[in-house]
Design a protein around this nucleic acid. Sequence first.
DNA 1: TAGAAGATAGAACAGTGTTCGTTACTAAAA
DNA 2: TTTTAGTAACGAACACTGTTCTATCTTCTA
Lengths: 252, 252
Amino acid sequence: MAKRTTPGDPLSREQWAAQIAAFEEPHGARGARKTPLSIERILDTALQIVEGEGFDALSMRRVATALQTGPASLYAHVRNKGELDDLLIGKLCARVVLPTPDPRQWQRQIIDVCGQLREQFLRYPGISRATLATAPNSLDTLRVSEGMLAILLCAGVPAQSAAWVIDAAYLYVTAYSLESSLRNQPGPELDNRVLDRSETIERLNMLPANSFPYTVAHTHELTAGEGNDRFNFTLGLLFSDSLMSTSLSNQP
Amino acid sequence: MAKRTTPGDPLSREQWAAQIAAFEEPHGARGARKTPLSIERILDTALQIVEGEGFDALSMRRVATALQTGPASLYAHVRNKGELDDLLIGKLCARVVLPTPDPRQWQRQIIDVCGQLREQFLRYPGISRATLATAPNSLDTLRVSEGMLAILLCAGVPAQSAAWVIDAAYLYVTAYSLESSLRNQPGPELDNRVLDRSETIERLNMLPANSFPYTVAHTHELTAGEGNDRFNFTLGLLFSDSLMSTSLSNQP
DNA sequence: TAGAAGATAGAACAGTGTTCGTTACTAAAA
DNA sequence: TTTTAGTAACGAACACTGTTCTATCTTCTA
Protein backbone atom coordinates (compact mmCIF):
# COMPACT_ATOMS: atom_id res chain seq x y z
CA MET A 1 0.00 0.00 0.00
CA ALA A 2 2.93 2.32 0.48
CA LYS A 3 3.88 3.96 -2.75
CA ARG A 4 6.78 2.35 -4.47
CA THR A 5 7.66 4.52 -7.43
CA THR A 6 9.66 7.25 -5.74
CA PRO A 7 10.83 7.02 -2.14
CA GLY A 8 9.73 10.62 -1.33
CA ASP A 9 7.73 11.68 1.70
CA PRO A 10 5.65 9.17 3.60
CA LEU A 11 2.20 10.21 2.34
CA SER A 12 0.99 13.74 2.94
CA ARG A 13 -2.05 14.73 4.94
CA GLU A 14 -4.16 15.47 1.83
CA GLN A 15 -3.24 12.17 0.25
CA TRP A 16 -4.20 10.38 3.39
CA ALA A 17 -7.55 12.20 3.46
CA ALA A 18 -8.13 11.39 -0.19
CA GLN A 19 -7.48 7.72 0.47
CA ILE A 20 -9.98 7.77 3.29
CA ALA A 21 -12.57 9.52 1.13
CA ALA A 22 -12.07 7.00 -1.65
CA PHE A 23 -12.47 4.21 0.87
CA GLU A 24 -15.63 5.70 2.28
CA GLU A 25 -17.65 5.66 -0.97
CA PRO A 26 -16.78 2.47 -2.77
CA HIS A 27 -20.34 1.32 -3.52
CA GLY A 28 -21.41 2.57 -6.93
CA ALA A 29 -18.53 4.87 -7.58
CA ARG A 30 -16.00 2.08 -7.89
CA GLY A 31 -17.83 0.14 -10.58
CA ALA A 32 -19.48 2.91 -12.61
CA ARG A 33 -16.64 5.27 -11.76
CA LYS A 34 -17.47 8.82 -12.78
CA THR A 35 -18.59 8.51 -16.39
CA PRO A 36 -15.27 9.44 -17.99
CA LEU A 37 -15.39 12.69 -19.87
CA SER A 38 -15.23 12.63 -23.64
CA ILE A 39 -15.29 15.25 -26.37
CA GLU A 40 -19.02 14.73 -26.78
CA ARG A 41 -19.70 15.32 -23.12
CA ILE A 42 -17.48 18.39 -23.11
CA LEU A 43 -19.14 19.88 -26.17
CA ASP A 44 -22.64 19.16 -24.89
CA THR A 45 -22.10 20.85 -21.56
CA ALA A 46 -20.32 23.72 -23.26
CA LEU A 47 -23.28 24.29 -25.55
CA GLN A 48 -25.60 24.08 -22.58
CA ILE A 49 -23.64 26.80 -20.82
CA VAL A 50 -23.62 29.06 -23.87
CA GLU A 51 -27.34 28.58 -24.38
CA GLY A 52 -28.10 29.53 -20.81
CA GLU A 53 -25.49 32.12 -19.93
CA GLY A 54 -24.02 33.34 -23.19
CA PHE A 55 -20.68 32.85 -24.87
CA ASP A 56 -18.85 35.19 -22.51
CA ALA A 57 -19.63 32.86 -19.63
CA LEU A 58 -17.97 29.96 -21.43
CA SER A 59 -14.60 29.39 -19.80
CA MET A 60 -12.55 26.30 -19.30
CA ARG A 61 -13.16 26.42 -15.59
CA ARG A 62 -16.89 26.84 -16.09
CA VAL A 63 -17.04 23.72 -18.27
CA ALA A 64 -14.78 21.83 -15.91
CA THR A 65 -16.78 22.56 -12.79
CA ALA A 66 -19.97 21.67 -14.62
CA LEU A 67 -18.35 18.30 -15.25
CA GLN A 68 -17.17 18.15 -11.62
CA THR A 69 -13.48 18.24 -12.44
CA GLY A 70 -10.61 20.68 -12.91
CA PRO A 71 -9.75 22.66 -16.02
CA ALA A 72 -6.59 20.66 -16.66
CA SER A 73 -8.64 17.57 -17.38
CA LEU A 74 -10.15 19.14 -20.46
CA TYR A 75 -6.81 19.53 -22.16
CA ALA A 76 -6.59 15.80 -22.68
CA HIS A 77 -9.42 16.05 -25.21
CA VAL A 78 -9.11 19.59 -26.51
CA ARG A 79 -5.93 21.37 -27.44
CA ASN A 80 -7.07 24.94 -26.86
CA LYS A 81 -9.97 27.06 -25.88
CA GLY A 82 -9.92 28.07 -29.53
CA GLU A 83 -10.22 24.46 -30.62
CA LEU A 84 -13.16 24.03 -28.31
CA ASP A 85 -14.81 27.03 -29.94
CA ASP A 86 -14.14 25.63 -33.38
CA LEU A 87 -15.66 22.31 -32.44
CA LEU A 88 -18.74 24.08 -31.11
CA ILE A 89 -19.44 25.99 -34.30
CA GLY A 90 -18.73 22.79 -36.21
CA LYS A 91 -21.42 21.08 -34.19
CA LEU A 92 -23.85 23.87 -35.03
CA CYS A 93 -23.02 23.73 -38.72
CA ALA A 94 -23.55 19.98 -38.69
CA ARG A 95 -27.19 20.57 -37.76
CA VAL A 96 -27.92 22.55 -40.90
CA VAL A 97 -29.89 20.43 -43.39
CA LEU A 98 -28.93 21.02 -46.99
CA PRO A 99 -31.50 20.73 -49.79
CA THR A 100 -30.93 19.00 -53.10
CA PRO A 101 -30.46 21.91 -55.49
CA ASP A 102 -33.52 22.96 -57.45
CA PRO A 103 -32.61 25.66 -60.00
CA ARG A 104 -36.17 26.97 -60.10
CA GLN A 105 -36.15 28.06 -56.46
CA TRP A 106 -32.48 28.58 -55.76
CA GLN A 107 -33.03 31.86 -53.91
CA ARG A 108 -35.54 30.34 -51.53
CA GLN A 109 -33.21 27.44 -50.88
CA ILE A 110 -30.08 29.40 -50.13
CA ILE A 111 -31.88 31.96 -48.00
CA ASP A 112 -33.32 29.07 -46.03
CA VAL A 113 -29.84 27.71 -45.37
CA CYS A 114 -28.72 31.12 -44.13
CA GLY A 115 -31.81 31.21 -41.94
CA GLN A 116 -30.84 27.92 -40.37
CA LEU A 117 -27.41 29.28 -39.59
CA ARG A 118 -28.95 32.35 -38.04
CA GLU A 119 -31.26 30.19 -35.97
CA GLN A 120 -28.35 28.22 -34.53
CA PHE A 121 -26.26 31.32 -33.85
CA LEU A 122 -29.11 33.10 -32.10
CA ARG A 123 -29.95 30.09 -30.00
CA TYR A 124 -26.45 30.23 -28.51
CA PRO A 125 -25.94 33.94 -27.91
CA GLY A 126 -22.56 35.32 -28.77
CA ILE A 127 -21.20 32.09 -30.18
CA SER A 128 -20.78 33.66 -33.59
CA ARG A 129 -17.78 35.50 -32.21
CA ALA A 130 -15.99 32.19 -32.34
CA THR A 131 -16.66 32.13 -36.07
CA LEU A 132 -15.04 35.50 -36.56
CA ALA A 133 -12.07 34.74 -34.35
CA THR A 134 -10.66 31.92 -36.41
CA ALA A 135 -10.45 30.62 -39.95
CA PRO A 136 -13.55 28.62 -40.85
CA ASN A 137 -11.80 25.54 -42.13
CA SER A 138 -13.50 22.70 -40.31
CA LEU A 139 -15.17 19.97 -42.29
CA ASP A 140 -18.61 20.83 -40.96
CA THR A 141 -18.41 24.43 -42.12
CA LEU A 142 -17.04 23.28 -45.46
CA ARG A 143 -20.03 20.98 -45.77
CA VAL A 144 -22.39 23.95 -45.46
CA SER A 145 -20.27 25.92 -47.88
CA GLU A 146 -20.39 23.03 -50.35
CA GLY A 147 -24.17 22.87 -50.04
CA MET A 148 -24.55 26.56 -50.78
CA LEU A 149 -22.13 26.30 -53.65
CA ALA A 150 -24.19 23.47 -55.11
CA ILE A 151 -27.38 25.52 -54.99
CA LEU A 152 -25.82 28.49 -56.74
CA LEU A 153 -23.86 26.60 -59.38
CA CYS A 154 -26.84 24.44 -60.31
CA ALA A 155 -28.82 27.64 -60.75
CA GLY A 156 -26.28 28.92 -63.25
CA VAL A 157 -24.45 31.48 -61.14
CA PRO A 158 -20.85 31.96 -62.35
CA ALA A 159 -18.34 30.24 -60.12
CA GLN A 160 -16.48 33.35 -59.00
CA SER A 161 -19.66 35.18 -58.12
CA ALA A 162 -20.96 32.15 -56.26
CA ALA A 163 -17.81 31.77 -54.21
CA TRP A 164 -17.66 35.43 -53.26
CA VAL A 165 -21.32 35.88 -52.46
CA ILE A 166 -21.27 32.82 -50.23
CA ASP A 167 -18.38 34.29 -48.33
CA ALA A 168 -20.20 37.60 -48.02
CA ALA A 169 -23.40 35.94 -46.83
CA TYR A 170 -21.56 33.90 -44.24
CA LEU A 171 -19.84 36.99 -42.90
CA TYR A 172 -23.11 38.87 -42.80
CA VAL A 173 -25.01 36.11 -41.02
CA THR A 174 -22.27 35.90 -38.45
CA ALA A 175 -22.07 39.63 -37.80
CA TYR A 176 -25.85 39.99 -37.79
CA SER A 177 -26.24 37.19 -35.27
CA LEU A 178 -23.55 38.64 -33.05
CA GLU A 179 -25.11 42.08 -33.01
CA SER A 180 -28.55 40.60 -32.52
CA SER A 181 -27.29 38.54 -29.60
CA LEU A 182 -26.16 41.70 -27.83
CA ARG A 183 -29.58 43.24 -28.10
CA ASN A 184 -31.52 40.28 -26.76
CA GLN A 185 -29.29 38.11 -24.65
CA PRO A 186 -28.20 40.32 -21.75
CA GLY A 187 -31.73 39.66 -20.57
CA PRO A 188 -31.68 39.58 -16.77
CA GLU A 189 -30.24 42.99 -16.05
CA LEU A 190 -32.07 45.52 -18.17
CA ASP A 191 -29.71 48.42 -17.57
CA ASN A 192 -27.35 47.25 -20.27
CA ARG A 193 -25.47 49.36 -22.72
CA VAL A 194 -27.70 48.17 -25.49
CA LEU A 195 -30.92 50.12 -25.55
CA ASP A 196 -34.32 48.99 -26.63
CA ARG A 197 -36.06 50.56 -29.57
CA SER A 198 -38.09 53.31 -27.93
CA GLU A 199 -35.06 54.46 -25.99
CA THR A 200 -32.99 54.52 -29.15
CA ILE A 201 -35.59 56.59 -30.98
CA GLU A 202 -35.69 59.16 -28.20
CA ARG A 203 -31.93 59.40 -28.12
CA LEU A 204 -31.77 59.91 -31.86
CA ASN A 205 -34.36 62.66 -31.59
CA MET A 206 -32.10 64.51 -29.18
CA LEU A 207 -29.48 64.95 -31.90
CA PRO A 208 -28.97 68.43 -33.34
CA ALA A 209 -31.06 68.58 -36.48
CA ASN A 210 -28.60 70.73 -38.40
CA SER A 211 -25.78 68.25 -38.02
CA PHE A 212 -27.87 65.08 -38.34
CA PRO A 213 -30.81 66.07 -40.53
CA TYR A 214 -31.40 62.72 -42.22
CA THR A 215 -30.90 60.69 -39.07
CA VAL A 216 -33.48 62.58 -37.02
CA ALA A 217 -35.86 62.60 -39.97
CA HIS A 218 -35.84 58.81 -40.24
CA THR A 219 -35.45 57.48 -36.74
CA HIS A 220 -38.29 55.06 -37.38
CA GLU A 221 -36.66 53.44 -40.37
CA LEU A 222 -33.25 53.37 -38.72
CA THR A 223 -34.54 51.42 -35.75
CA ALA A 224 -36.92 49.12 -37.65
CA GLY A 225 -36.27 45.51 -38.49
CA GLU A 226 -36.27 43.68 -35.20
CA GLY A 227 -37.80 40.61 -36.78
CA ASN A 228 -36.70 38.74 -39.86
CA ASP A 229 -37.39 41.64 -42.21
CA ARG A 230 -33.98 43.24 -42.07
CA PHE A 231 -32.24 39.90 -42.35
CA ASN A 232 -34.21 38.78 -45.37
CA PHE A 233 -33.83 42.17 -47.00
CA THR A 234 -30.05 41.96 -46.97
CA LEU A 235 -29.99 38.38 -48.19
CA GLY A 236 -32.34 39.40 -50.97
CA LEU A 237 -29.80 42.00 -52.05
CA LEU A 238 -26.92 39.55 -51.97
CA PHE A 239 -28.74 36.74 -53.76
CA SER A 240 -30.38 38.86 -56.39
CA ASP A 241 -31.01 37.96 -60.04
CA SER A 242 -28.11 40.15 -61.06
CA LEU A 243 -25.82 37.35 -59.89
CA MET A 244 -26.60 35.40 -63.04
CA SER A 245 -25.11 37.96 -65.41
CA THR A 246 -21.37 37.42 -65.33
CA SER A 247 -20.43 41.05 -64.85
CA LEU A 248 -17.15 40.47 -63.08
CA SER A 249 -14.06 42.40 -63.99
CA ASN A 250 -11.83 40.95 -66.69
CA GLN A 251 -9.56 38.64 -64.74
CA PRO A 252 -9.23 34.86 -64.64
CA MET B 1 6.80 64.91 7.17
CA ALA B 2 5.05 62.24 9.12
CA LYS B 3 1.66 61.49 7.62
CA ARG B 4 -1.16 63.24 9.36
CA THR B 5 -4.41 62.02 7.86
CA THR B 6 -4.85 58.68 9.58
CA PRO B 7 -2.71 57.49 12.44
CA GLY B 8 -2.24 53.96 11.02
CA ASP B 9 1.05 52.14 10.89
CA PRO B 10 4.26 54.09 11.20
CA LEU B 11 5.27 54.01 7.51
CA SER B 12 5.95 50.66 5.89
CA ARG B 13 9.25 49.57 4.42
CA GLU B 14 8.08 50.10 0.82
CA GLN B 15 6.80 53.57 1.58
CA TRP B 16 10.08 54.40 3.16
CA ALA B 17 11.95 53.17 0.09
CA ALA B 18 9.63 55.17 -2.16
CA GLN B 19 10.32 58.32 -0.19
CA ILE B 20 14.02 57.74 -0.53
CA ALA B 21 13.70 57.16 -4.27
CA ALA B 22 11.63 60.33 -4.66
CA PHE B 23 14.27 62.21 -2.73
CA GLU B 24 17.07 60.86 -4.87
CA GLU B 25 15.78 62.25 -8.21
CA PRO B 26 14.38 65.71 -7.58
CA HIS B 27 16.18 67.53 -10.40
CA GLY B 28 14.03 67.77 -13.52
CA ALA B 29 11.21 65.57 -12.40
CA ARG B 30 9.97 68.00 -9.83
CA GLY B 31 9.42 70.93 -12.16
CA ALA B 32 8.33 69.36 -15.45
CA ARG B 33 6.66 66.54 -13.62
CA LYS B 34 5.56 63.75 -15.92
CA THR B 35 3.28 65.27 -18.58
CA PRO B 36 -0.10 64.43 -17.05
CA LEU B 37 -2.02 61.82 -18.95
CA SER B 38 -5.19 62.80 -20.77
CA ILE B 39 -7.75 61.00 -22.88
CA GLU B 40 -5.93 62.06 -26.01
CA ARG B 41 -2.65 60.64 -24.82
CA ILE B 42 -4.33 57.41 -23.75
CA LEU B 43 -6.11 56.97 -27.07
CA ASP B 44 -3.01 57.78 -29.07
CA THR B 45 -0.82 55.25 -27.31
CA ALA B 46 -3.61 52.70 -27.44
CA LEU B 47 -3.91 53.10 -31.20
CA GLN B 48 -0.15 52.85 -31.48
CA ILE B 49 -0.19 49.55 -29.63
CA VAL B 50 -3.00 48.14 -31.76
CA GLU B 51 -1.26 49.22 -34.94
CA GLY B 52 1.94 47.49 -33.95
CA GLU B 53 0.83 44.45 -31.99
CA GLY B 54 -2.82 43.92 -32.80
CA PHE B 55 -5.99 44.39 -30.84
CA ASP B 56 -5.42 41.31 -28.68
CA ALA B 57 -2.32 42.92 -27.23
CA LEU B 58 -4.31 45.96 -26.11
CA SER B 59 -4.81 45.68 -22.37
CA MET B 60 -5.13 48.26 -19.65
CA ARG B 61 -1.76 47.29 -18.28
CA ARG B 62 -0.13 47.50 -21.68
CA VAL B 63 -1.38 51.05 -22.17
CA ALA B 64 -0.47 51.98 -18.63
CA THR B 65 3.09 50.72 -18.82
CA ALA B 66 3.53 52.45 -22.17
CA LEU B 67 2.60 55.64 -20.35
CA GLN B 68 4.91 54.71 -17.46
CA THR B 69 2.16 54.36 -14.90
CA GLY B 70 -0.18 51.78 -13.40
CA PRO B 71 -3.48 50.56 -14.78
CA ALA B 72 -5.51 52.24 -12.06
CA SER B 73 -4.52 55.66 -13.33
CA LEU B 74 -6.40 55.12 -16.57
CA TYR B 75 -9.71 54.76 -14.81
CA ALA B 76 -9.75 58.45 -13.97
CA HIS B 77 -10.25 59.19 -17.68
CA VAL B 78 -11.99 56.07 -18.96
CA ARG B 79 -14.78 54.19 -17.27
CA ASN B 80 -14.18 50.76 -18.80
CA LYS B 81 -12.03 48.85 -21.19
CA GLY B 82 -15.18 48.78 -23.27
CA GLU B 83 -15.41 52.55 -23.21
CA LEU B 84 -11.79 52.77 -24.32
CA ASP B 85 -12.61 50.49 -27.24
CA ASP B 86 -15.61 52.61 -28.15
CA LEU B 87 -13.52 55.76 -28.07
CA LEU B 88 -10.97 54.12 -30.32
CA ILE B 89 -13.44 53.18 -33.04
CA GLY B 90 -14.94 56.63 -32.64
CA LYS B 91 -11.54 58.11 -33.37
CA LEU B 92 -11.25 55.97 -36.49
CA CYS B 93 -14.71 56.93 -37.68
CA ALA B 94 -13.88 60.59 -37.16
CA ARG B 95 -11.15 60.27 -39.79
CA VAL B 96 -13.57 59.27 -42.52
CA VAL B 97 -14.21 62.17 -44.88
CA LEU B 98 -17.78 62.40 -46.12
CA PRO B 99 -18.55 63.74 -49.60
CA THR B 100 -21.35 66.15 -50.41
CA PRO B 101 -23.96 63.90 -51.99
CA ASP B 102 -23.97 63.81 -55.78
CA PRO B 103 -26.95 61.75 -57.05
CA ARG B 104 -25.21 60.97 -60.34
CA GLN B 105 -22.39 59.02 -58.69
CA TRP B 106 -23.97 57.85 -55.46
CA GLN B 107 -22.58 54.32 -55.79
CA ARG B 108 -19.02 55.49 -56.21
CA GLN B 109 -19.42 57.82 -53.23
CA ILE B 110 -20.83 55.31 -50.77
CA ILE B 111 -18.43 52.56 -51.78
CA ASP B 112 -15.61 55.03 -51.21
CA VAL B 113 -16.84 55.71 -47.69
CA CYS B 114 -16.93 51.97 -46.99
CA GLY B 115 -13.42 51.72 -48.39
CA GLN B 116 -12.23 54.37 -45.96
CA LEU B 117 -13.72 52.41 -43.08
CA ARG B 118 -12.00 49.28 -44.31
CA GLU B 119 -8.73 51.14 -44.57
CA GLN B 120 -8.92 52.26 -40.96
CA PHE B 121 -9.95 48.85 -39.68
CA LEU B 122 -7.17 47.08 -41.53
CA ARG B 123 -4.57 49.55 -40.38
CA TYR B 124 -5.35 48.57 -36.77
CA PRO B 125 -5.66 44.79 -36.98
CA GLY B 126 -8.46 43.25 -35.01
CA ILE B 127 -9.93 46.52 -33.82
CA SER B 128 -13.17 45.82 -35.66
CA ARG B 129 -13.97 43.29 -32.96
CA ALA B 130 -14.63 46.27 -30.72
CA THR B 131 -17.28 47.37 -33.19
CA LEU B 132 -19.06 44.03 -32.98
CA ALA B 133 -18.82 43.81 -29.21
CA THR B 134 -20.91 46.85 -28.43
CA ALA B 135 -23.74 48.99 -29.77
CA PRO B 136 -22.42 51.55 -32.27
CA ASN B 137 -24.04 54.60 -30.74
CA SER B 138 -21.22 57.08 -30.45
CA LEU B 139 -21.53 60.42 -32.17
CA ASP B 140 -18.65 59.71 -34.50
CA THR B 141 -20.18 56.52 -35.85
CA LEU B 142 -23.51 58.28 -36.18
CA ARG B 143 -21.77 60.95 -38.21
CA VAL B 144 -20.61 58.35 -40.72
CA SER B 145 -24.04 56.78 -40.73
CA GLU B 146 -25.59 60.18 -41.41
CA GLY B 147 -23.21 60.75 -44.28
CA MET B 148 -24.08 57.46 -45.90
CA LEU B 149 -27.77 58.12 -45.36
CA ALA B 150 -27.40 61.46 -47.07
CA ILE B 151 -25.79 59.90 -50.13
CA LEU B 152 -28.51 57.29 -50.52
CA LEU B 153 -31.49 59.52 -49.81
CA CYS B 154 -30.29 62.21 -52.19
CA ALA B 155 -29.96 59.51 -54.83
CA GLY B 156 -33.59 58.59 -54.38
CA VAL B 157 -33.26 55.36 -52.44
CA PRO B 158 -36.32 54.71 -50.26
CA ALA B 159 -35.69 55.46 -46.59
CA GLN B 160 -36.25 51.96 -45.29
CA SER B 161 -33.99 50.40 -47.90
CA ALA B 162 -31.33 53.00 -47.23
CA ALA B 163 -31.38 52.41 -43.49
CA TRP B 164 -31.19 48.66 -43.80
CA VAL B 165 -28.54 48.52 -46.48
CA ILE B 166 -26.33 50.88 -44.51
CA ASP B 167 -26.62 48.60 -41.53
CA ALA B 168 -25.78 45.60 -43.69
CA ALA B 169 -22.79 47.32 -45.27
CA TYR B 170 -21.44 48.37 -41.90
CA LEU B 171 -21.73 44.85 -40.57
CA TYR B 172 -20.07 43.46 -43.67
CA VAL B 173 -17.17 45.90 -43.59
CA THR B 174 -16.59 45.09 -39.96
CA ALA B 175 -16.68 41.31 -40.41
CA TYR B 176 -14.59 41.48 -43.57
CA SER B 177 -11.93 43.57 -41.87
CA LEU B 178 -11.82 41.28 -38.89
CA GLU B 179 -11.38 38.18 -41.01
CA SER B 180 -8.84 39.94 -43.19
CA SER B 181 -6.89 41.00 -40.12
CA LEU B 182 -6.52 37.38 -39.08
CA ARG B 183 -5.02 36.44 -42.39
CA ASN B 184 -2.43 39.19 -42.52
CA GLN B 185 -1.68 40.43 -39.06
CA PRO B 186 -0.26 37.42 -37.21
CA GLY B 187 2.77 38.24 -39.28
CA PRO B 188 5.86 37.38 -37.24
CA GLU B 189 5.18 33.72 -36.56
CA LEU B 190 4.15 32.09 -39.81
CA ASP B 191 2.94 28.84 -38.32
CA ASN B 192 -0.46 30.28 -37.49
CA ARG B 193 -3.80 28.63 -37.80
CA VAL B 194 -4.63 30.81 -40.75
CA LEU B 195 -3.14 29.41 -43.90
CA ASP B 196 -1.97 31.23 -46.95
CA ARG B 197 -3.59 30.71 -50.29
CA SER B 198 -1.49 27.94 -51.80
CA GLU B 199 -1.73 25.92 -48.61
CA THR B 200 -5.49 26.38 -48.59
CA ILE B 201 -5.80 25.20 -52.18
CA GLU B 202 -3.81 22.06 -51.46
CA ARG B 203 -5.90 21.32 -48.41
CA LEU B 204 -9.11 21.74 -50.36
CA ASN B 205 -7.80 19.39 -53.02
CA MET B 206 -7.35 16.70 -50.40
CA LEU B 207 -11.10 16.62 -49.77
CA PRO B 208 -13.04 13.56 -51.01
CA ALA B 209 -14.44 14.49 -54.38
CA ASN B 210 -17.67 12.58 -53.91
CA SER B 211 -18.62 14.50 -50.77
CA PHE B 212 -17.28 17.88 -51.85
CA PRO B 213 -17.56 17.89 -55.65
CA TYR B 214 -18.14 21.60 -56.16
CA THR B 215 -15.58 22.69 -53.60
CA VAL B 216 -12.72 20.73 -55.12
CA ALA B 217 -13.82 21.76 -58.61
CA HIS B 218 -13.51 25.46 -57.78
CA THR B 219 -10.69 25.79 -55.30
CA HIS B 220 -9.31 28.66 -57.32
CA GLU B 221 -12.45 30.75 -57.15
CA LEU B 222 -12.99 29.93 -53.48
CA THR B 223 -9.58 31.23 -52.49
CA ALA B 224 -9.49 34.22 -54.84
CA GLY B 225 -10.04 37.82 -53.83
CA GLU B 226 -7.10 38.72 -51.67
CA GLY B 227 -7.11 42.27 -52.96
CA ASN B 228 -10.00 44.68 -53.19
CA ASP B 229 -11.92 42.59 -55.70
CA ARG B 230 -13.94 40.54 -53.25
CA PHE B 231 -14.69 43.60 -51.14
CA ASN B 232 -15.90 45.69 -54.04
CA PHE B 233 -17.91 42.79 -55.44
CA THR B 234 -19.99 42.49 -52.28
CA LEU B 235 -20.53 46.21 -51.97
CA GLY B 236 -21.61 46.25 -55.59
CA LEU B 237 -24.27 43.71 -54.73
CA LEU B 238 -25.48 45.65 -51.71
CA PHE B 239 -25.53 49.04 -53.42
CA SER B 240 -27.06 47.90 -56.69
CA ASP B 241 -29.55 49.78 -58.86
CA SER B 242 -32.32 47.53 -57.57
CA LEU B 243 -32.25 49.59 -54.39
CA MET B 244 -34.13 52.37 -56.17
CA SER B 245 -37.24 50.31 -56.87
CA THR B 246 -39.22 50.31 -53.64
CA SER B 247 -39.87 46.59 -53.54
CA LEU B 248 -40.19 46.26 -49.80
CA SER B 249 -42.91 44.17 -48.25
CA ASN B 250 -46.19 45.94 -47.45
CA GLN B 251 -45.52 47.40 -44.03
CA PRO B 252 -45.08 50.97 -42.76
C1' DT C 1 -2.04 80.15 3.69
C1' DA C 2 -5.72 76.52 4.50
C1' DG C 3 -8.86 73.65 2.41
C1' DA C 4 -11.11 71.11 -1.05
C1' DA C 5 -11.02 68.59 -5.28
C1' DG C 6 -9.20 65.73 -8.32
C1' DA C 7 -5.51 63.09 -10.55
C1' DT C 8 -1.92 59.40 -9.70
C1' DA C 9 -0.51 55.17 -8.07
C1' DG C 10 0.29 50.76 -5.14
C1' DA C 11 -1.76 46.73 -3.79
C1' DA C 12 -5.01 43.50 -4.02
C1' DC C 13 -9.15 40.58 -5.73
C1' DA C 14 -11.44 37.57 -8.66
C1' DG C 15 -11.28 35.96 -12.83
C1' DT C 16 -8.93 33.94 -17.37
C1' DG C 17 -6.03 30.21 -20.36
C1' DT C 18 -2.45 27.08 -19.92
C1' DT C 19 1.33 23.93 -18.22
C1' DC C 20 3.90 20.89 -14.94
C1' DG C 21 4.24 16.99 -12.25
C1' DT C 22 2.01 13.47 -9.95
C1' DT C 23 -1.46 10.30 -9.14
C1' DA C 24 -5.05 6.56 -10.54
C1' DC C 25 -6.78 3.52 -13.57
C1' DT C 26 -7.13 0.51 -17.72
C1' DA C 27 -5.70 -2.73 -20.83
C1' DA C 28 -2.38 -5.36 -23.02
C1' DA C 29 1.94 -8.37 -22.49
C1' DA C 30 4.69 -11.93 -19.90
C1' DT D 1 -2.40 -14.25 -12.96
C1' DT D 2 1.00 -10.80 -12.48
C1' DT D 3 3.50 -7.07 -14.39
C1' DT D 4 3.98 -3.22 -17.09
C1' DA D 5 3.16 0.43 -20.18
C1' DG D 6 0.17 4.09 -21.57
C1' DT D 7 -2.98 7.49 -20.72
C1' DA D 8 -6.64 9.96 -18.59
C1' DA D 9 -7.53 12.78 -14.43
C1' DC D 10 -6.27 16.27 -11.54
C1' DG D 11 -4.10 19.68 -7.91
C1' DA D 12 -1.25 23.41 -7.93
C1' DA D 13 0.85 26.98 -9.92
C1' DC D 14 2.14 30.77 -13.48
C1' DA D 15 1.36 34.71 -16.05
C1' DC D 16 -2.01 37.18 -17.44
C1' DT D 17 -6.67 39.99 -17.58
C1' DG D 18 -10.14 44.00 -15.85
C1' DT D 19 -11.36 46.41 -11.89
C1' DT D 20 -11.61 48.55 -7.24
C1' DC D 21 -10.03 50.26 -2.68
C1' DT D 22 -7.12 53.01 -0.48
C1' DA D 23 -3.67 56.40 0.28
C1' DT D 24 -0.68 59.79 -1.50
C1' DC D 25 0.34 63.86 -4.08
C1' DT D 26 -0.59 68.05 -6.88
C1' DT D 27 -3.06 72.03 -7.90
C1' DC D 28 -6.50 75.30 -7.89
C1' DT D 29 -9.61 78.16 -5.11
C1' DA D 30 -11.41 80.85 -1.11
